[in-house]
């Protein structure tokens, strides 16, 4: 018997499954990325390598549409992520450093509500609500809806980070003559920073990613990148869509890489298995 079969952590076939999993995850993206460089009008035949569809995205017939959609997507993601991160940071401090209070479980349930309600239900409810109060659908309605459902995504990493920061740091700061405000500014906030950055990036990506809610609340005459792509794909996949998709893929990968390094770089606060002492 080979040694591997005696290793309790190794099961035959698990590695193959992992490889299969990776292939399934990456094959579609890789194929789309490869075909985005296809110098052919047809998406089926390979006609040689070229950047023509990227040029088409930026300067072609639909360039204006895509540029407007990209501007809407990015500006909404920026604003929604900023607002939801600020709201979530405040909430996490209240929840983690606010002691025990009766409304705490209810508050937590409320924060995670956007995660529990199916996206399409949120979309329908928001659409009906804005229509019921007679609010004209457009940029503002998209932004508000995005802020709301980005809150839990920003909240979770920030809260996790804050929970990991031992209270002794703030006590030490106060012991060293810092006022509450100074202890927050010079000690707690810098220690929370990696969580805040991670929460911001996550919220940004989630907002950029959203299709369903945006599609419901956007109203006529305004598109974001996902709704624009969806509209185009409905007419059939064209090569410029492949190029646009690849660009979005690159943006996403850029973001994950940043957040990966941010979360690794963050100094580990405390983390002692503090023995019971009094």
């Amino acid at each position: 018997m080979a040694l591997a079969s005696r290793n309790i952590r190794k099961y035959p076939g698990f590695f193959s499954m992992t490889l299969l999993c990776m292939v399934l995850l990456y094959a579609p993206l890789a194929v789309v990325a490869a075909y985005s460089f296809n110098d052919s009008l047809s998406i089926t035949r390979w006609g040689g390598f070229s950047f023509r569809w990227y040029l088409d995205v930026f300067f072609g017939l639909e360039a204006d549409k895509f540029r407007d959609a990209a501007w809407n997507s990015l500006s909404i993601a920026f604003l929604a992520a900023t607002a939801s991160t600020i709201i979530a940071t405040a909430a996490s401090i209240g929840m983690v450093r606010g002691g025990e209070f009766r409304a705490k479980p209810a508050s937590f349930a409320l924060i995670s509500l956007p995660l529990m309600v199916p996206e399409i239900v949120t979309a329908v409810a928001t659409l009906i609500f804005f229509s019921a109060i007679g609010f004209v659908r457009g940029y503002a309605t998209i932004l508000v809806a995005h802020i709301v459902f980005c809150i839990p995504f920003a909240y979770l990493p920030i809260e996790a980070r804050l929970r990991g920061i031992e209270g002794t740091f703030e006590e030490a700061a106060q012991d060293l003559y810092a006022s509450r405000g100074q202890a927050f500014r010079f000690v707690l906030l810098p220690l929370m920073a990696p969580g805040i950055v991670a929460g911001y990036l996550l919220a940004f990506i989630i907002s950029l990613d959203d299709f369903i809610i945006t599609n419901f609340v956007k109203g006529a005459g305004i598109e974001t990148l996902p709704t624009a792509i969806f509209g185009a794909v409905k007419q059939g996949i064209k090569p410029n869509i492949l190029a646009l998709s690849t660009l979005m893929l690159l943006i996403s990968i850029g973001f994950v890489t940043i957040s990966y390094f941010v979360s690794r770089k963050g100094v580990k606060p405390g983390g002692h298995g503090a023995p019971e002492t009094t």
Partner: peptide
């Protein structure tokens, strides 16, 4: 605590991890 001329050495030191050693000592 910040108005008492008393300082503490904490059990696990509670050194500020985002500051240098010098900045830690200078903080108070």
């Amino acid at each position: 605590p910040n108005k008492r001329p008393i300082n503490t050495v904490f059990q696990h030191y509670a050194l500020f991890p985002h500051m240098t050693v010098e900045a830690n000592v200078a903080f108070g």
